[in-house]
Design a protein around this nucleic acid. Structure first.
Lengths: 147, 147
DNA sequence: ACATATTCGTTGCATTTGCAACGAAGTCAA
DNA sequence: TTGACTTCGTTGCAAATGCAACGAATATGT
């Protein structure tokens, strides 16, 4: 039975990030899931739409770490619920141009303040450390891969 | 059509954490998935075992953000592959005490150096910012919830 | 001691997910 | 133009997931 190297899981960054990411995502989801019936993938699509206006499935896939089939299905649910509309892009008819409906806009006018309030709570918790922390995230996100 | 509040997704911490966590988890998984046939949940269980010796399903569930059924099934696959053995706890026979087999120990003697090398690469990328960054993660993880 | 409540790990089931394959649309080169 | 190749979004399908329910074991209260 070989002796294993000394490995401290509690100091292992990928593990720590997985835990903290899931906690913050679920903490946020608690604010909107029951009240609005929105799932996490759906929230991500909506947030992109509110942020960027007209967006294609591929735009979202490229920016979030979210498979295109996941985006496609989330968008289908949002369309069925009347929050989102799809139109074929005029100049490239392969692209689906997605945008918020009036109903979707109303939804986001309620959701975004919740998200911003949540962000404020995270910033409060980090206090003066916030900027350094976000700078670290920037570094990890910077060049394409984190190999 | 109400004007939505100004919301910058690129600065939204839960979203940034989700992206960076997934990138690092997948970056790590690339090192072991194909070579050893281990999935991410299985890796997490193995890492806990290497770190803590004998562990029950509930121990893992409590420390990682990982549903007990997910832990149970990952452990079942690892047991079938011969990496892990289960024994009933003597003092409380509801508990399943899991530990690495000799084969599992050999596996981890190969996996752990990969993980530690990956950790080193993340630390290199963060450079002097590493300590501040990890301090921020500590703050977010600290008290139970991130409400 | 006994009945009731709780905890642990597994499993059944419906939903979600990832991957590959697909048709439609567009690009490119000869 | 034609034909081969690429890109976009959707969908079929198998695997993974989350949740609730379950049996077994233990704890609790009277």
């Amino acid at each position: 039975m070989t002796d294993l190297p000394d490995f401290d899981l509690d100091r292992f960054t990928p593990y720590r990030l997985a835990v903290v990411a899931q906690k913050t995502s679920e903490g946020l989801a608690r604010l909107y899931r029951d009240r609005f019936g929105i799932s996490i993938p759906e929230w991500r699509v909506l947030a992109h739409l509110a942020h960027s206006g007209d967006v294609s499935v591929r735009d979202i896939e490229a920016r979030v770490v979210m498979e295109k089939s996941k985006v496609s299905r989330a968008a289908a649910r949002l369309e069925a619920a009347g929050y989102l509309q799809k139109t074929a892009d005029k100049s490239d008819r392969r692209l689906v141009s997605m945008s918020l409906t009036a109903k979707g806009n109303t939804l986001m006018s309620e959701l975004l303040p919740l998200a911003m309030e949540y962000q404020r709570r995270l910033e409060d918790r980090l206090g003066a450390a916030f900027d350094d922390f976000e700078a670290g995230v920037d570094r990890l996100l910077s060049d394409g891969k984190v190999p």
